[in-house]
Design a binder for these strands. Structure first.
Length: 558
RNA sequence: GUGCCCAUAGCUCAACCGGAUAGAGCACCAGCCUUCUAAGCUGGGGGUUACAGGUUCGAUUCCUGUUGGGCACACCA
């Protein structure tokens, strides 16, 4: 019997065939195969007959019967039923389900890898914090969601580039430099002369101390040494950015997030890309001068008002280098770009897209894609935490990692739909109890590791297992979970929704825990033992694969 | 005032792009360890999917409006 790995697409093909036969003029109909919520409705269901009822002017149940008669033979299908208003319910044979065990064990870490992306390039830009302070919780959410999204896209067959863009030019850097300079001179934020917009966190003092002590920091493949000269604003600026870039890098490393490319706003200026973009926009005819400023008519492209490009003081507004940056991405061959950002930046989307359209260089209208995550609030002892010692006005990512660990932080920040506001409950994330989903999943993995350890046999033996012995309701449920995994990857990649992986893993762990409590694995009957161990080894493999997408470890012991 | 996001069990959240009886966990109640990890499992109660309309065979899902919460609305970034 041939092994079918993706029942959904297999069944979909069967129906496509039947549709061509039964209603050749309706081949445009979308064939949707779904998993019914109720087991009595089969393993998969198709609603095609109901869709066709109107155009064919026949009752759905009649059409369903005709479709079923035209379905090609398939040895993975046990039976087909018509139910309800005209649903076609399909039942998969036990043997086909059981075969998943060997499929998983053979594929190993590759199980769940798909070819949806076809090796095409996609760039995901995320975090992109300004180098003006430690990363905060919001950046943490961006890092967790973005990194997990990259992993999911990679698993789905995309060639992923992770990119971090940092604004090392512009007003906020001047502000940073001035704040550090003041600290160098001994002025502190509680001084009345401290600028309203100045940065007040303790870390500014650290930067100042390091600069005055002529320390050397390494960041972005460069070594920068403090000059100790309080009047050299260029040196202070350079050092402060390098110092904070290094600090952010360390935070990211502690969070197990790595980037392939760092892009600098300042480079867009020094390489002439900003000027070129401005020239192109002027040439495009979408700009005009007014009040000593240069404007882009973004209203031509759906914005609610036009935007200033060049201020009356001669400087460019933020969105100009942003457009230049995205033009650069396009030219680097990224036909697909996804920007993961905090929702507080959503207003830039229209502007950037408008700017790119105005360039008229063939960039598609909706390019690039965006994933916006909503705000994070941090809770401890039932109360909102708003400050940290180091940063002052916000909770840092480092605080969370130090307090609850990398695994739990990543899990909680990635396990929610990005569109929903997130409450990060520190007490929950720290709790080593069954209300903590991270431990729940990891515990399942550790239990399997222990059982396999006690067994002590060679993994290769499991490949010989007679999986036909896996027949209980618990085993069937677990088999079904393993079968569903690739579909989860597909959905997560398509919807840019990495949280689906987190929910899936909870379900997978639940199916295993139930099985564990209901059955013994290390039984006397060699064949049964082997079959059961093969199944849980496969489950552990999928847990491993899924957890690695989340960037969460899969411990052998707990 | 305008735009974007959200609203589902007491709490935290799901629901496979419109499907069949809306699901988990926590909390509450009642059970399960001389057995491979009880950080686990089994059972129970708990819902007008914020509200009001609309679209159709069928709506938590799509459309309109209302209410409530968040975010953004600079010649800031």
């Amino acid at each position: 019997m041939s092994v079918v790995l993706n029942f959904k697409s297999h069944i979909s093909e069967l129906f496509a065939h039947a549709l061509r036969e039964v209603a050749p003029d309706q081949v445009g109909a979308t064939i949707l195969i779904e998993r019914p919520k109720q087991a009595s409705h089969g393993d998969y269901a198709c609603n095609l007959a109901m869709q066709l009822a109107k155009p064919l002017k026949k009752s759905p149940r009649d059409i369903a019967q005709v479709l079923i008669n035209a379905l090609p033979k398939s040895d993975v299908i046990e039976k087909v039923e018509i139910a309800g208003a005209g649903f076609i319910n399909l039942f998969i044979t036990k043997a086909a389900k059981q075969a998943i065990v060997h499929a998983v064990l053979h594929a190993g870490a590759g199980y769940g890898h798909l070819h949806l992306g076809g090796g095409r390039k996609v760039q995901v830009e995320f975090v992109s914090a300004n180098p003006t302070g430690p990363l905060h919780v919001g950046h943490g959410r961006g890092a967790a969601v973005g990194d997990c999204l990259c992993n999911v896209l990679h698993a789905a067959g995309w060639n992923v580039t992770r990119e971090f863009y940092y604004n090392d030019a512009g007003a906020q850097i001047e502000n940073l430099m001035r704040s550090v300079q003041l600290r160098c001179k001994g002025v502190t934020p509680d001084d009345p002369s401290w600028p309203e917009a100045g940065y007040r966190g303790d870390y500014i003092g650290d930067v100042a101390r390091a600069y005055m002590a002529c320390e050397t920091v390494e960041a972005d493949d460069q070594r920068t040494t403090g000059k100790g000269d309080v009047d050299d604003v260029v040196a202070i600026r350079h050092f402060a950015v390098a110092y904070l870039r290094r600090e952010q890098d360390l935070d990211l490393r502690a969070f197990n997030v790595e980037f392939d490319v760092f892009s600098l706003e300042s480079a867009l200026y020094s390489e002439g890309k900003v000027d070129e973009t401005v020239s192109r926009l002027i040439a495009s005819g979408h700009t005009y001068e007014q009040d000593d400023a240069l404007w882009l008519r973004t209203t031509d492209f759906g914005d609610d008002k036009d935007r200033v490009m060049r201020k009356s003081d001669g400087g460019y507004t933020y969105f100009v280098p942003d457009v230049a940056y995205h033009l650069d991405k396009w030219r680097r061959g990224f036909v697909r770009v996804i920007n993961e950002q905090g929702a507080d930046h959503h207003s830039t989307i229209t502007r950037v897209r408008a700017g790119l359209q105005a360039l008229d260089v063939g960039i598609p209208k909706g390019w690039p894609d965006y994933v916006l995550h909503q705000m994070v609030t941090v809770l401890k002892n039932g109360e909102e935490v708003k400050i940290s010692k180091r940063a002052g006005s916000y909770v840092t990512l480092r605080d969370l990692i130090d307090e609850v660990g990398c695994d739990a932080t990543r899990y909680f920040l990635a396990a929610r739909h990005p569109d929903s506001q997130l409450v990060f409950d520190i007490d929950l994330a720290k709790s080593k109890s069954n209300d903590n989903p991270v431990y729940y999943i990891q515990y399942a993995h550790a239990r399997i590791s222990t059982v396999l350890d006690i067994w002590g046999g060679e993994r290769l033996e499991l490949l010989q297992a007679d999986v036909g012995l896996l027949d209980s309701e618990y085993e069937t449920a677990l088999l079904q979970q393993l079968i569903d995994y690739p579909q989860v990857i597909e959905n997560a990649a398509q919807d840019l929704a990495p949280h689906l992986v987190a929910f899936y893993l909870k379900d997978l762990a639940a199916a295993f825990h139930s099985y564990y409590n209901a059955s013994r694995f290390l039984v006397d009957d060699e064949a049964v033992k082997c079959a059961r161990l093969a199944l849980i080894a496969a489950a552990a493999q999928v847990m491993n694969n899924g957890l690695s997408l989340l960037g969460v470890s899969a411990p052998e012991k707990m």
